[in-house]
Amino acid sequence: MRTTYVDFDPLGMNHARAHLTPGDAVRTLTADLLDTDRLFSAPEVADHLDPTSPIAVSVHATLHWIPDDDAVRHTLHGLVSPLPAGSTVSITHPTADHVPAIRRAQADAVADNDPTLHLRNAHRLHDLLDGLVLLPPGLAPAGSWNTGDAASTDTATWAGIGLKAA
């Protein structure tokens, strides 16, 4: 298995370099997720990952920092387009969908007062993942995504894995 860790935050990159084992299997790339053309043309990706075999892309704790749904859609499309069929994209995204009313009000207040945090509901996320086949159990609360308890809502985060079909 080969891995390329991508981050544009210097602190995130320092952490990754400190904890990832360097070698043939792991590369790191300082880049902006929104610039998918640069991502895929960078040697850390282009010369490292096999474009003829399925690739797994993880976009976790990231999309909520992008304020515009069109920019998220464009970014996801830019990540998926060059991938071969059978590749997957996994996401996590904070939401206020499954929290009690008081916590929902708190989450909305945080989102209203912090212009960098953008909560999205399940409907918006489904729309943004259009074109991918969601693997079971689909878009689900992160704490129960693959535990067999898809009804659990003890989380403020959605999780899902989309498959690029042939």
Rank of each mutant, 00 (worst) to 15 (best):
M13Y: 01
I161H: 02
W145R: 05
L139A: 02
D7Y: 08
A111Y: 06
L20K: 04
T21P: 09
T3L: 15
V57R: 01
P115C: 03
T3E: 10
P84Q: 15
G138L: 05
I66F: 06
A46C: 02
T28P: 04
D154L: 11
A85D: 12
L29K: 05
L119H: 07
Y5N: 12
A71P: 00
L39H: 10
D97A: 07
D50C: 00
H48A: 04
L63M: 08
I91P: 01
F8W: 14
D9Y: 09
T153Y: 13
H15C: 06
S144I: 05
V26W: 04
T21F: 03
H48E: 06
A101M: 00
L128E: 03
S90A: 14
T62D: 06
R2E: 06
T28V: 11
G148A: 08
S53L: 08
T3C: 13
Y5H: 14
Y5R: 09
L39A: 07
A156L: 10
L11P: 00
P54Q: 14
G23S: 12
L132D: 08
A96M: 00
L49K: 05
T62V: 13
P100D: 15
H93S: 05
L20A: 01
D7N: 13
D47Q: 13
W65R: 04
D47N: 14
H74N: 15
A31R: 08
P141S: 15
S41K: 06
A159V: 00
T28M: 06
M1N: 13
D127F: 01
D47G: 14
H93D: 07
A165T: 15
G23D: 10
A101V: 02
L49C: 07
A140Q: 10
T88W: 05
A109S: 11
I102C: 00
G78Q: 09
P84T: 14
L33Q: 07
G131A: 10
T4C: 15
S81G: 10
K164I: 09
P94K: 08
T92H: 03
S152L: 12
A166G: 13
L11D: 13
V99C: 06
T4V: 15
H64K: 02
R17Q: 14
A142V: 08
P10W: 11
I161W: 04
I55V: 14
S152M: 09
L129F: 01
L139R: 03
P51I: 03
D112F: 00
A156S: 15
A140G: 10
E44S: 11
I91D: 02
L139F: 06
S144Q: 12
H77A: 13
R2T: 12
R73N: 09
